[in-house]
Write a protein that binds this DNA or RNA. Sequence first.
RNA 1: GCGGGAAUGGCGGAAUGGUAGACGCGCUGGUCUCAAACACCAGUGACUUCACGGUCAUGCGAGUUCGAGUCUCGCUUCCCGCACCA
Length: 1036
Amino acid sequence: MDYRPSEIEPKWRTYWKEHKTYAVHTEHSKPKYYVLDMFPYPSGAGLHVGHPLGYIASDILSRYKRLRGFNVLHPMGFDAFGLPAEQYAIDNGIHPADSTRENIARYKQQLDNLGLSYDWDREVQTCDPKYYRWTQWIFLQMFNHWYDTAADKARPVSELVEYFKINGSAGVQAATTFEGSFTAAEWNSMTVREQQDVLMNFRLMYRKVGYVNWCEALGTVLANDEVINGVSERGGHPVEIKPMLQWSMRITAYADRLLRGLDTVDYPDGLRMLQSNWIGRSEGAQVFFDLENTGKKLEIYTTRPDTIFGATFMVLAPEHDLVDEITTEAQRGDIKNYLDWVKSRTERERQIEKVVSGAFTGAHAIHPFTGAKIPVFISEYVLKGYGTGAIMGVPADDERDLRFAEKFKLPVVHIVDKSMYPGAGMEDKVGKMINSDFLNGMEVLEAIQEVINRLSEKGIGKRRVQYKLRDANYSRQRYWGEPFPIIYDSEGIAHALPENELPLELPHTTEFKPGGGKGPLAQLSHWANLPGGMERDTDTMPGFAGSSWYFLRYMDPKNDQEFVSAEAIGYWQDVDFYIGGAEHAVGHLLYSRMWHKFLYDKGLVMTEEPFKKVVNQGMIGGKSNFVFRANERFFEEYLMIKVLQPFFAEEGPIKIAQTDLEEDSTYDFAFGANDLVIEVTSIKQVDKIERVRKTAAADNKRLLLLYNEELSDNINEPELVAQKIRRALNSRDNFIATSETPRSEQLFVSCSLTGKYSPDVFTKLHVDVNLVDNEVLDLEKALSRTQFRNANFKIDKEHGSIYLCSTELEKMSKRYANVVNPDDMVALYGADCFRMYEMFLGPIEVSKPWDTKGITGVSGFLKKFWQLFFNGELFIVSDDPATKDELRVLHNCIKKVTEDIERFSMNTCVSHFMIATNDLRKLNCSKRAVLEPLTVLLAPFGPHIAEELWSRLGHSGSVCDATWPEWNEDYLKSDTKEYPVQINGKLRATIELPSDITHADAEAAALSLEQVQRWLEGKQPKKVVFVPGRMINLVV
RNA sequence: GCGGGAAUGGCGGAAUGGUAGACGCGCUGGUCUCAAACACCAGUGACUUCACGGUCAUGCGAGUUCGAGUCUCGCUUCCCGCACCA
């Protein structure tokens, strides 16, 4: 029988569902393997062929691991809270819960269509209260913990309180935003409110006034990674910096562990680098400068303390706390003007036009070693958020400082002699110190150590490690997210809801617009205001909250006592293989690593890192197709080129008017030896037609009107127009125009013909790629689309009367009409074929374009593979023993496929299947001994066809429970080998030799070859390189 | 500007330092067919030669090696991150 995927595939999908083939349970007798796809956000657009790339690859790996005896966890779920659904609700009035539910249903149906082996009983959705109950719970755990930098782990806040009672703040080593100190007595005499304010600065989830990315258009605060080039990632709206009281996640406490952990995991180099840069560790020194006449100290951070003798000015960030205090009366005007200017600049302007700007505060700092007075400036090139928000300006050793010094005419003191290091840049840490007192003569690296020692001795500075990483903003003024399980009392103190009140469910509303800097929840006063003057937090958690721990929930998704049971986490441990797009490199992957480390500190998970191995899949680009719409001007050119040429000879030269839009007195064409003139125009240009008609009458000319629309209707028969012109020439009529109403509204010209016309007579438009096959537009299908209503097509007759489109590679997107839906591919070729073709396109990690036409190759392969089992309707698999050749084909395939899956090279696996199938066809092999192992081998790639053939081979269970075949090297050897014979490394001959030939015999055999002798020209080779099983090289 | 990655036929892509271009698409020719589609067979890097064959070919230029797409150095182009991080 024929291979009919549309019949066998639904059958097996039903079988899997009914038999719960993919249900996973804790089985201690088997080793575990956890394969995870990055959490999809179920967008309204559904899946296109780019999305399943990773899902298919991970599915193949899962099925393979299962066949190799692993207990494989391969779950799927949805990151279901988020902005798009809420934006959709604002725009269309559909509640996010409803649109999300629909989108998820569509996603699941599309995923199932691909035969993916998910255990749907483990599905999680972040917007499900049963799930976000535990997101809230983890939030509260973080709220109730602080980070002890001495122990290098999170500890309960209650322990910190005990410590404060006895010791005050002395000796506490913590990741904290608290500044200052207190004694035990001071602590004990503080009010509750004061104590809570202190503690808030230690919590891992804490509230602070932060400078946040405020987006007016979206009405919300955005995380750093949601802001691209100063505008919002979604929508591209402008973003400004604004102070706001927000929840913050103290990820900086884990900066060092997040950095060090990267050495223990198997991530792509690019990803590792990205995270490492994002964390941005730098070593340097914190230095205090006295401020003249104020008794105040200015704290700066520098990675180059060695250059301190080159410091000729100081610069504060415009938002620095000291700015107001230290500005002198004389400079107050300047500073105010500058601050106003800075405020007026959007984040985007700041990033794009980097102008050197600043203002003098009038204050001076005192150099700690020389006692010199150093002027203090403010400038936007110093950022409030990094280091201490203040720097020492060393123009001799820093480009930005130099530009600033030049602008403000500040002195430059050279402190590093780089003459020994030609080619070294200004900021390279090499050279000998000069003009630097006790540092003179030292190498830079040595000087850095020395100056830090001196600063420490004087008590005005110390070594400090600084991170670029910022604490993550954790509040969103939005509706569609997890509500905070926090209530505030009348004093504004934050209290955690008791655990038994979780989940705090998101209240229902129909009003989703944010307002006044507050989210929609703030408007639900019945919900937000509690008896006794207590108020709820009305913000919601950010998108990364739910996705930072979902992979743990899959281990134990139904547990209503714990976020995950100790038993489940003990067995499943962590994710062995994680695949997804590189866009999550610094957001999701960093946040979930941090949450995992926190849970690890609590003893709730077993490993410090959540993901052992991460693979980034490449993007699949779209191939856009274009059609060429003819503009008005096209028809004149067309008439000239295709119709009027023959009339030249007969009727004398044809005068062609210039552009006739303005000139009433000229026509498009006029004949030299005939009083006929021709005007080409759209039938819609009634005024113009009337005008030309009058002009012709006045000129005593006979007028032939040709409408663009009528030319368009007959575009593929120019002779008809020629006949019309001929009749007009011979007639006596003064005015000739068609009386019929042309149907055409627009004309499209085949790409292959556009070269004959001026490029500007066409408009290039996207056309749905689903109407195009191999660049040829399906005219019948196209005419049924509104884009081509009443359209005519000028077809290419030379290439078979077809309409050709041009192509370009673009992102796959609805906007470019180049989206290919996997459902359509499955309907046409089957899921197995689609899966294998996705893999066949190329390496998973590489971005590549989708091209549907190549899929026939895979389709052909599956048909051929099927035909190994069938002759017509007859199942022809025999139990005859396999021949040596057949076994070699089989075992070679087992070896290659096994090795290639292990190194995640799925594209070459598909090639190996094709090679094996082609070889077996040539050998006419239909033997069970060969086909049965091959079926198992194929099962991870084409699960439906494998199930069908497996059952035809007489097995009752699923092929998923078969055993992966092992290869035997003995079968791979052949008796002879065709050796290449090289002379000086160039191939000159080949020779068939026994595989186990000795060097001497091989050399003799090679030398005996006629071609070799000809190349040697009688000389003896100087040296003979012989690589057994590889090649022979004669060096002359 | 900084950091990372990539570059191989018309296209997607193969190649533990060892016969470059596997496999597939496309294209050309053939068989089948009234015809087309499907299917099957053969060919397909460029140049050159009647042919045998030869020459040149993995972005460019050097180097290491008996031998380089692969290793080293320099350059070009493209893609992706980051971007006043002190």
